[in-house]
Structure formats: C-alpha cells, structure tokens
C-alpha cells in the first residue's frame, strides 16, 4: 500500500446537479488525497461524467462546493496541475490534419501562457510524454490516421505532458484491446507509484481496476460507497451499485493494489 499523504487534492461537498427535472447527482461528498488512485465506478447514466465535468468547472453544480488543492473552484487558477482525458476524446474531428506531436503540444499551451512559443524544454517534454505511452514512433503521423486505442494514448500523452499533479481519466480504455488495457493499467500504476501522481479513473472494468487502485467510489446518483479498495472487495457488488448487476471479477491476489 502506498503511503497516502494527508493533503486533499480534490474535494466535493454535498454536490447536487440536475440537467432538467431528473436529479443526476445528489449530495455527493467525496475526496481524493494526494498520491491516491481512485476508481470511480457506476452503471451507464449514473452521473460519473457529469461529476467530472463539475469538478473541472465545465458545468456549475446546483448545490454544493468543490475545492481543488484546497481552493474553491471559482478561485482556482492552476489548471496546469490537472490533466484530463475526456470520455469522448476519440470522437473529435477525425479529418483534422494535426500531427501527434502537434496534439500533445496542446497540453502545454495553458501553462505556457499567451505570447509564448514552444522551446527545447517543451519539445523534450513532448518526447517524454509520447515515450511514456509508447507512441514515439508515431509522432509525425496525423491523428486521424491512428486507431482508436492509439488516439486514446495520444490524448493521455497530452494530459501527461504538463506533468499534472492529478490525472483525471473518463473511461480511457473504451475500444482498447485487452493487451493494451493491461499496458495502460501498468502505465497508470507507474505514474501513481513512481511519480506519486494522484489519479481519478472512471471505468467499467471493475475487475481489472480493483487490482490497481487504492480507493473506490461507487456512484449512482448518490455515492453508494467511498472507501479503500480492500473495503470495497468485502462489499457486495449489487449493494454498492444500487441494483443487481452481474460482474465478471478476475482472480486477483488478496493483497490489494500491487
């Protein structure tokens, strides 16, 4: 088990939200400590992506408060500390003639500020990020020419390039083959354990995820469960999901994450 620091990276306090009439989130209170790896699970339409969008300030909650690195969201300025890979990252305009390198460079633009140009250090960071996701050989290719899984890796590199303190990933393994999923989780583990990066992962692969994460949160409009992965494994899945589900759980060691 990782030594989990006490500093809270991300915190939601009684957050509620509705798109029209139907409430999507109700009184969600959750926190992520520095250095932890939280898996956020829940059935389709349970409000996971909505919660992430609220955390990122893309939509404002109807009630409740969000704090990022201890700062209320409205006052938060250090967006370079947050890396995000959206669920629909691979549904961008596929005809866009941008190279992999150009796409990853975008991840640096926010922290570079206005009127600044890419320099050698930036270029080295881009190389590093591509190397981390195993896409160095593709840097000159246009993004539209890559497969869905490869594109997803490029978007992860774009999130990593600014060396964020927390990386938020919304279902990054959709459309990624089994072997790549394995590599992907290994990459996340490395980032979490070796670099101490805090991770928030939205996923449906509950079985695989529990082997890597330190904490689990189960959302279905309300937060049904929020605790360590050991505590999660002792729970009955249907109770945490809020209704009956059949889940394939892969055999895994009892020792918890790695």
């Amino acid at each position: 088990m990782l030594p989990v620091n006490q500093q809270t990276v991300l915190e939601t306090d009684n957050v509620s939200y509705r798109y029209s009439k139907q409430p999507v989130l109700e009184n969600v209170s959750m926190e992520i400590k520095k250095g932890s790896f939280l898996g956020l699970v829940g059935p389709n339409g349970s409000g996971k992506s909505t919660l992430i969008k609220i955390l990122l300030g893309l939509i404002a909650p109807d009630a409740g408060e969000i704090r990022l690195f201890g700062t209320p969201l409205k006052k938060f300025k250090h967006w370079e500390k947050i890396g995000y890979v959206s669920q629909k990252a691979n549904s961008f305009n596929s005809g866009f003639p941008a190279t992999v390198q150009e796409v990853v460079a975008m991840g640096l633009y926010g922290q570079m500020g206005l009127f600044r140009f890419l320099n050698k250090t930036h270029k080295r960071k881009i190389e590093n990020a591509l190397e981390q996701v195993g896409m160095s050989d593709y840097k000159k290719r246009t993004i539209g020419e890559l497969s869905g899984g490869q594109q997803q890796r490029v978007f992860i590199a774009r999130a990593l390039v600014s060396e964020p303190d927390i990386l938020i990933l919304d279902e990054p393994t959709v459309g990624v083959d089994a072997q790549s999923v394995q590599q992907f989780y290994t990459l996340l583990s490395t980032l979490n354990i070796e670099k101490g990066m805090t991770l928030l992962l939205v996923t449906h692969d509950v079985g695989v995820m529990t082997r890597y994460v330190s904490h689990v949160a189960c959302l279905n409009r309300i937060l049904h469960f929020h605790g360590t992965s050991e505590e999660f494994e002792e729970q009955n899945l249907s109770s945490v999901y809020g209704h009956d589900v059949t889940m394939i759980t892969h055999g895994h060691e009892s020792g918890g994450p790695l």
Partner: peptide
C-alpha cells in the same frame, strides 16, 4: 502569430482548451 497556439487548440477541441486554462 501571437495567438497561434490558442487558436489551434480551440479549433481542435474547445472544451479541452477551456479546461487547460485557455481564455
């Protein structure tokens, strides 16, 4: 010239640009 990178990011993915702190 001065806003090239912002314009590029915005053209590619406006939502992501916003999250990354692009005005």
């Amino acid at each position: 010239i001065f806003f090239y990178k912002e314009l590029f990011f915005l053209s590619f993915d406006e939502e992501q640009a916003k999250i990354n702190g692009i005005p």
